[in-house]
Each structure stands twice: as C-alpha cells, then as structure tokens.
Design a binder for these strands. Structure first.
Length: 253
DNA sequence: GTTCTAGAAC
DNA sequence: GTTCTAGAAC
C-alpha cells in the first residue's frame, strides 16, 4: 500500500476510470472511496480533488489546509460537511436494508494521518471489522479520546481564535501519545485487557444495540397496528374521520 | 497503511 | 506453550 495512493486518486483527470471497488461516488469537487481497510462495517473516505484555491501541498493534510486562507478553509469544510451528509444518508439506507436498523456514523479526521492527502473518514460506529487489529487502529477512531477530530469539532475552531490556533498547532507527539492509551470501550467506558477482548466486547455491544433497536421497532409496529385497528373500529362505529397527526414520531433515548 | 516477528505477558 | 504487542521494514 502506497502512502500516496489517495493523492493519486485526487489528482486523476477522470476519476470515473477508478475501479468500482475503489470509487463509491464523485462530483466535480471530491471523490468518495471505499476505505481499503475498513475499521467499521461501513467506512468511506472523502477526498477533495486538487483545485483552486488550494494546491496539492495545501491539501496534504488537515494541518497544512488550516494554514490557508481562513474563510476559504471554513467554506471548504462546510462544503465537505454537506457532501458527507449525502454519504451518511446512503449508508443509513444500506444499514436499514441490510440490518433492519441504523446506528451512528462518525465524520472526522485523524489528528495525525498516516497517508498523504487530506481525507475525511466516514465510518460506522460499530467498529466491528476484521481489519481493526491493533490498539492504534481502535484508539484512532475512539470518538472521545481526542485523536479522531470530528468535523463539527474542527468547524467549531473557527468560532474562537484562541482555540483554533491552539488546536491547529498542537504537537503531533501529543496526539500520537493518545494512540497508546489503555483500551476502553467508547460506549460503556469499560476497560479492556487486550485487542481480542476489546473486539469481542465491541461485537457484544453491537449485538445488544441491534437487539434493542429491533425490539423498539417491534413495539412501534404493534403500537401502529393497534392505532390503525382502533381507528378502523371508530370509523365503523361512528364514521368519524381519523385524526392521527403526530402519532408516528419515534421516541428518542 | 500492512506485514513480519522477537520477546513480553500470561 | 500460546497469545499478544509493538517496533522495524516495506
């Protein structure tokens, strides 16, 4: 695996020549590719194409990009946020059709990337994947550890000058140290002895979530069945028009 | 980024 | 003895 393969994708004159196993979607400004080593059931990378006002060097990584014109960078990140939403929607549709429910999807950058060319991770929060093998893999996606920089968090840096400059300059070594932190489940906080134990635990967490979500849907289905049955009865008995507005929203946890 | 593998941990 | 981690090589 070349460390510059993402850049070569982003520089392609005609990205549609990329094989369908690599390219998920594209427009004039970006490509979305399948991560070659997915760390969750769903894992994509959004790559900006090299174009004005940024050079390939500007787009080398998030750090280099953040040194460019502030307004341009902010507008670009906001555009990526919109582009990522489309991918998230596609993933959610696939989650529902394949698994019968949907779960969180994280959108963000690695504070210290290991490949050239800035890439936005779009990864499902299960973190259940054969390719997730090492502590650094896991810690690099742990949503609360600090190495994974959520896009919304990066955008928030633009709200405050001091925070922006602090975070943008933060030492690589401080971030890299986070990858060596002890293993802890991002969901329940339980500490995990080693990678095989953590992976088994993550699978259990995901299975539990699936069970809960399916039970929730079953309750909703039965409720709606009951509603529709009682409406039918009302109509038969009194011929009242049904007024069921607001009955189909889902309870949030 | 992965693969390989020595030696630490169990 | 086997499992697991982590550093070097690529």
């Amino acid at each position: 695996m070349s460390l510059t393969i993402l850049r070569s994708y982003a520089l392609k004159e005609d990205p549609s020549t990329l094989p369908p196993t690599v390219l998920f979607s594209r427009d004039d400004h970006h490509l979305v590719v399948f991560d070659a080593f997915p760390k969750g059931i769903f894992h994509f990378l959004l790559l900006p194409r090299v174009q004005e006002p940024f050079s390939a060097a500007d787009l080398s990584n998030l750090r280099s990009l953040l040194k460019c014109d502030r307004d341009s960078v902010k507008a670009t990140l906001e555009q990526w946020k919109e582009d990522a939403k489309v991918v998230v929607k596609d993933i959610e549709d696939e989650m529902v059709s394949r698994y019968g429910f949907k779960w969180d999807i994280w959108v963000g950058f690695h504070a210290v990337p290991s490949m050239e060319h800035v890439h936005l991770h779009i990864v499902s929060s299960d973190l259940c994947s054969e390719k997730l093998k090492h502590k650094k893999h896991y810690n690099s996606f742990h949503p609360k550890l600090g190495f994974f920089l959520h896009l919304d968090e990066v955008l928030s840096w633009f709200e405050s000058d001091s925070y922006f400059t602090t975070m943008a300059k933060l030492d690589k070594h401080k971030y890299e140290a986070l990858l060596k932190e002890d293993l802890a489940c991002w969901r329940c906080g339980s500490s995990q002895k080693n990678m095989p134990t953590l992976k088994a635990h993550l699978q259990t967490e995901f299975d539990d979530l699936a069970k809960k979500e399916k039970a929730k849907q079953e309750r909703k289905r039965k409720f709606e069945e009951k509603q529709s049955a009682s409406n039918d009865t009302e109509e038969e008995v009194s011929k009242k028009p049904k007024t069921t507005a607001g009955s189909d929203h889902e309870a949030e946890e």
